[in-house]
């Protein structure tokens, strides 16, 4: 009986009439409502000065950003600042991943290398990368080098950990497949280790990227002459809220775009990976 009842219920559901409730419960409609509410709330708080004069209204931010495209701020246009931050991230990120990913693979493949590197790595790992800012300024001054150094420190850990774990978590029988078919150790590594650890390595790159953004901002907030962190700290020093919020918006957009880029790259390199629904 129950099964029949369910059948009926199902068909009833499928033929549900198009009512107001269906619109109200539509995901995209809700998204739109939420967005509108977000900007309205922002504007309202800005207009009524609920948080003092510190929150710029959305259109003020837009005007500020448009202005920065044409009128350089501290010698650089908006795109100049974006590039300054992105460039630091790129350099640090590339250096870190070029060293850390192979090192992680080596550590996973060779117990002796692991025994040498792991203790030192474990010793340094719990220190948040931002804690290195001061020492990096002592070492490299306040120029580019110190910022790149922080990014290297920050991205090194997830790159290494993920490639290390990526290899260690490989199903050992996959190696047996290659051995059974007459492959030697080198072929095992090329045919199993590398491809099997790709997804983990990419996950590490994603994490690294978000850490890199945190690091570059922190470094620029502490001391810089250019970059998006510099833009918002300048806004603070000049008491220009539109500059602060504008800087944050740009950071959000650029950080989001870089994430998309890595995701696209991953899809290209690992087409076999099934997508997990959600975020």
């Amino acid at each position: 009986m129950e099964a029949v009842a369910n059948e009926v219920q199902k068909t009833v559901r499928e033929k549900r009439p198009f009512t107001l409730l269906t619109i109200l419960k539509n995901r995209w409609f809700l998204y739109a409502v939420s967005m509108v509410f977000f900007f309205w709330l922002w504007d309202f708080v800005g207009e009524r000065r609920i948080l003092g004069s510190s929150l710029a209204r959305p259109h003020e931010v837009l005007i500020q950003l448009a202005d920065m495209v044409t009128n350089p701020l501290a010698g650089k246009s908006l795109f100049g600042h974006i590039w300054a931050s992105t460039q630091r991230i790129l350099i640090g990120f590339v250096i870190a991943s070029v060293v850390a990913v192979p090192l992680g693979l080596l550590m996973a493949l060779n117990p002796y290398i692991n025994a040498v590197v792991k203790p030192v790595f474990d010793l340094l790992k719990p220190m948040p990368p931002i804690a290195w800012i001061s020492i990096s300024i002592l070492w490299f001054g306040i120029g580019e080098a110190s910022k790149v150094f922080i990014i290297i420190i920050g991205t090194f850990v997830p790159c290494l950990l993920n490639s290390y774990n990526g290899v260690r978590l490989i199903e050992p029988e996959l190696y047996d497949v290659v051995r059974m078919l007459g492959g030697n150790r080198r072929q095992e590594i090329i045919n199993v280790c590398f491809p099997a650890s790709f997804p983990a390595i990419f996950a590490g790159l994603q994490i690294s990227l978000s850490i890199a953004w945190t690091c570059v901002l922190a470094a620029e907030l502490v001391s810089a002459r250019s970059g998006l962190g510099f833009v918002i700290i300048l806004g603070m020093n000049l008491a220009r809220p539109a500059l602060i919020v504008g800087g944050m918006v740009v950071i959000a957009v650029v950080a989001w775009l870089t994430t998309l880029l890595v995701t696209a790259l991953e899809k290209l390199v690992c087409p076999w990976k099934r997508e997990i629904e959600g975020m």
């Binding site: 199903e171 029988e173 996959l174 051995r179 078919l181 007459g182 045919n191 099997a196 690992c270 076999w272």
Partner: peptide
């Protein structure tokens, strides 16, 4: 003394390479 291509093994758990 070791595995070799003169024997072929079909694994209990498939063991296909997911990336191929």
């Amino acid at each position: 003394t070791g595995p070799g291509p003169d024997r072929g093994l079909v694994f209990q758990g498939y063991m296909l390479f997911p990336w191929k």
